[in-house]
Design a protein around this nucleic acid. Structure first.
Length: 436
DNA sequence: TCTGGGGTCCTAGGACCC
DNA sequence: TCTGGGGTCCTAGGACCC
């Protein structure tokens, strides 16, 4: 019989901020998405006030003032660093694990009996809390889908003390009967609405669905969910994550972009970051896609504009200069004056591993020189901060473009991050100071 | 006025081939 | 008048995840 545990950090981003700022404890706190757009992490106190995942910030202004809610911009370098520390804390207790997301880890528990599983669950919670200050809950079940459901129960039921094991059939039936079908892993808003319409409102009802019907309605992924809810494992622990198939850098603008020059500058900066990400993963891209569009929320749909285009590289590339050149060429081709663009992105597709480095015979020398240039750029930027060295934009004549922004950090398209906390663990000047 | 970013998988349908 | 069948590849779109 298989068994999996899911260790999930409680309100992860809020918990990360609380580790370093004690004034955030025991009070409502929310963390906003990029561009300070909407709430993506809420403390228990904020959840109790009715703030939902994804609520737009501008609609929360009143409730924030009324209840003195603390609001923070998201600080990904901090969260990524604490996430690594959480995994390191778990690894000693549970060597077979899968890092599923920034705040979730699946752990292999096959072979342990119920008492051993629950003890390991409590040990993992205690160690992560002691080593990192991050509170977690542990859900355990014979399949990943049931471990997910168990985790949800562990978070909600005080009698679980943070650990819930759904190996027991009676307990499982009881919990699933009380679980909304929309709260099952893999059932989103669309599918849950359709399921409820045909008389399947709870997870227990979904578990009783005929797998063939589930497949017809929800493709093979739906059939898998039904089987997993019945304790038949269809998903394995993926301890070695497969190579990425695509990587993207996309951003909403701080203010709408209406000029070609601003769009070029924004897309060039995303392309620069995308190329860095490729090199970090030892990959090169065969194709690049650039897109930008106006606000999907605007009332006047006649002003809507969405543009995208692709460029194929003759040889897969992770070269910043080549990628920025291709991206800005696409921008010039796709741009439409008169539109208020609110978001743009660069996607790297058709990715290939370049670890072995199979250079083509005739360009080997120049690609080798380019690779050394990229390595030097990455080294400087790692030491002195992202964006210290970046390509200058050129005009169509190939000359450097005149500087338009006195300081690039002032560009209007750049994102709002008004309430950013310090990078306590990843920037030397942001280290907390202890006074004794 | 103001609504994130970065991924995955699955399927249908069209283009193309022999 | 009557005009096949089966395979692959690619893309777009839809759904989901955190």
């Amino acid at each position: 019989m298989t068994a999996f545990a899911l260790v999930d950090c409680n309100a992860f981003y809020v918990s990360c901020e609380r580790v370093f700022d004690g004034s955030l404890r025991n009070r409502p706190v929310i963390v906003l998405s990029n561009n300070d757009g909407c709430a993506i992490a809420r403390s228990d106190e904020a959840k109790a006030l009715g703030i939902k995942m994804g609520d737009p910030y501008f609609k929360l202004r009143d409730i924030i003032r009324q209840h003195d809610i603390r609001v923070l911009s998201s600080n990904y370098p901090l969260y990524a660093d604490l996430s690594r520390r959480v995994v390191a804390a778990l690894r000693g207790l549970a060597p077979e694990l899968e890092v599923y997301s920034i705040d979730e880890v699946f752990v292999q528990m096959t072979g342990l009996d119920r008492v051993e599983r629950i003890k390991l669950g409590h040990d993992m919670r205690a160690r992560v809390l002691r080593w990192t200050g991050i509170p977690t809950c542990v859900g355990i079940g014979p399949t990943k889908t049931l471990a997910k459901a168990a985790n949800r129960a562990a978070k909600r039921l005080p009698e679980c003390a943070g650990v819930c094991d759904l190996g027991d059939h009676a307990l499982r039936a009881h919990i699933l009967a009380k679980t909304d079908v929309a709260d099952i892993w893999g059932i989103g808003p669309r599918l849950s609405a359709r399921l409820k319409a045909i008389g399947i409102p709870t997870a227990a009802d979904l578990a009783r669905m005929d797998p063939a019907n589930a497949r017809q309605m929800m493709t093979v992924t739906g059939e898998r969910i039904v089987r997993e809810l019945n304790g038949i494992a269809c998903l394995e622990l993926e301890d070695a994550p497969p190579a990425r198939q695509a990587t993207a850098v996309t951003r909403s603008f701080g203010k709408p972009v209406t000029s070609l020059a601003d769009m070029e500058a924004a897309v060039a900066s995303y392309a620069t970051r995308a190329a860095e990400k490729l090199r970090e993963h030892g990959q090169a891209a065969g194709m690049l896609q650039v897109f930008f569009h106006t606000s999907p929320w605007a009332e006047d749909r006649s002003a809507a504009c969405s543009r995208s285009g692709t460029h194929s590289f003759p040889q897969a590339s992770s070269d910043t200069l080549a990628i920025v050149a291709a991206a800005t060429t696409l921008v010039r081709k796709l741009f439409r004056p008169g539109c208020r663009f609110t978001k743009a992105g660069v996607m790297m597709l058709d990715l290939q591993d370049v670890g072995g480095g199979m250079g083509d015979l005739f360009t080997a020398e120049s690609t080798e020189r380019r690779a050394r240039l990229m390595a030097a750029m990455d080294g400087v930027n790692a030491r002195l901060g992202r964006g210290t060295l970046r390509p200058a934009l050129t005009t169509r004549l190939g000359r450097p473009a005149p500087a338009r922004h006195p300081s690039s950090s002032q560009a209007s398209w750049q994102q709002n991050q008004v309430m950013l906390s310090p990078c306590y663990t990843t920037r030397i000047e942001d280290l907390p100071v202890v006074k004794v």
